[in-house]
Nucleic acid binder design. Structure first.
Lengths: 206, 206, 206, 206
DNA sequence: CATGAATGAGACTTCATTCAT
DNA sequence: AATGAATGAAGTCTCATTCAT
């Protein structure tokens, strides 16, 4: 049954998240899924294949979502970047166990299975970078910042959230994503107050 | 000799960084340090103690530096936050193997050794949060953003750099840190150009 | 269908020959025969039963042929031994996979199935020994050699051929068998040339 | 200690001989040698390495002995062949467990370790073949027999003895070897009686 | 007839750790 | 101070076999 297979993967993700890949035994995965150790190997060729499938599943989801945002013709460039960020945080919240495994156990995916993951991960990163660069070209974002560093900063803020995000937190993932977007777009300096009409008119008068 | 001890730790850090804690054997650590497997156990009680010492060494360095910035009376709040950020990126670059181990293998430090690390890590995080909150109170930073989220965003940008920072890169760690600071303070939107009084008045006059 | 059963045995013989009994899986046997793993167990009670049947089939063939030679009233004792030898080599060539399994995997046939095989194997060996002893008694073969050792020598020459015989070889199995017979009967020393009357008389005259 | 290593190999040979390579566990090898399972792996990298070492040790012995016979200047060609045969049987008796493993488990030596064994085995076979061919050229052996088949016959007689040779048997290995030599040289036919003076003189008179 | 999901015993192997020297 | 022989617990994986369908 497909069901058993999925249950095994689900068990593996949770255990890998909590205990790490190497500290999780096939035995435990089986037990949690309600099947024997042998059954796990009936469905998967090795423990490492399970790890790979977790990575693959997650990278596919993340890439699909990013591409969907990219396709939306109702959004401007800045709005696209905003949605990419919000989406990412939401997705990290939704797939948290997958994300943790993805970021913590990546190096243990066997060499031969790695290229597929790496390629999609790079494509995903490029989507973000391109939208950013488009926004810079279009004059929606300032041009004096290294686009590479900005991309890294975005991923840093979002990806790192897998370390502290918790499902029932005070803020929803969307709210968190929007906060990040605000910080990114406007900064935390007193930019807004500066735009208040009084000081501006004064400036003009001078 | 103290020297041997340090060489063993140095070997361990590099191996843990590259291969991960569980995939590194005492044998390998010994070989890389030029001593026997037995010697490793002569200097350390267990493999896990080595892992702990790596964590401890790093958290001490990071905490010391943060506290040093905090003490500087020559800096304003915003400047302090700027230095905290730059310091963090610089330190991540300098201690990269330690950082990778710190973020990837933390969960494998044995329960009984954990509190010491956790406590210092929290103290460190609070230093950042407090400076930020001071800046908000003092009116140097905008007040409409969740200080917790901003702190998370700062650590996200900086900490995540351990994933991609490389020693001989195009930008120095300090430049990277300053870029992050700029993004954080001013945002990537076209806010600043708007504040330029000359261009603004011109725009109005036209 | 009987056909399926035979196909499974045929697959098993070839795989056992090439990879050995323990390195061959039921799965592989099924695949090669074009049926599922379950089907193999539908036709046979265990993997070991298949091994046994292979042994049984082969020992029956070899025993039948030997007995047929024995019955032939048109042959003298020496001719019977010759035919036994030729027959054996021919049979080894024809049933090579069976022979290899018979000689290499015999020890893995389960205890309870063994007696049947052993008994027939012994009967077969005795046929050879008896014909040899008859030939000695009848004065067709020299009497100063240990009949047991001669029997061992005969089986050695013939049986060992399973290690190197190949179907499309330079010599036919019959030719090989006849060569063995010649060696056995006449030896490789220059006995025959000595009997040449011309050279002998010359030698005497000198 | 070298001693432990040797004891492990000795245990392995005996177990492999009796139960076969695949049916012997590392556990058993260790127990028989009086050490733990772990100790076996302390001395050998794998079970297969042990199998290889057994093969190597035996092929070295057999090759050395053959080469020593070859070097003896006190022997004529026929005597050399005789000694090669006698030596082989003696050696098979002495190293019987090794021989059984060599002939039964050869196919399980891992690919990468195989060439070394194969090369020496071929060199050994060639020594026998060459001596035989020299004897033929020199007129010591009849020339009308295929030298290849004769070589196969010799190895068949001798090698096959590993199946039935037993240490405390009725005949010594040397006696067995000499019997084989007699059969090979003179055949089992009534060659000698043919040389009886009566028939010979008759032949001359005719 | 035939399948294949599921099992569980048992194999090889790894490795942190101990300890006599 | 330092070694390395030896251990034993534990892990991944294999595979013959069973059984419901």
């Amino acid at each position: 049954m497909q069901e058993t297979r999925d249950r095994i993967i689900a068990s593996a993700v949770e255990l890998f998240e909590k205990k790490g890949y190497h500290s999780t035994t096939i035995q435990e995965i089986g037990e949690k899924a309600g099947v024997s150790k042998g059954a796990v190997f009936h469905y998967f060729s090795s423990k490492n294949e399970i790890l790979f499938l977790i990575h693959e599943k997650f990278i596919n989801v993340i890439l699909n979502r990013a591409e969907n945002v990219l396709k939306r013709s109702d959004l401007g460039t800045a709005e696209k970047l905003r949605e990419l960020i919000v989406n990412l945080v939401e997705l990290i919240a939704e797939y948290k166990p997958y994300v943790v495994v993805f970021f913590q156990e990546f190096k243990y995916v066997e060499q031969e299975r790695l290229p597929l993951i790496k390629e999609k991960r790079d494509r995903c990163e490029q989507i973000y970078r391109r939208v950013l660069e488009q926004g810079m070209s279009a004059g929606e974002f300032r041009k004096d910042l290294d686009p590479d560093m900005v991309t890294k900063a975005i991923f840093g803020m979002c990806d790192w959230s897998h370390q502290w995000l918790n499902p029932g937190g005070r803020l929803t993932p969307r709210e968190i994503g929007l906060t990040f977007w605000k910080i990114l777009l406007e900064g935390i300096g007193r930019t807004q107050p500066d735009i208040d009409p009084v000081r501006r008119s004064m400036a003009i008068n001078l």
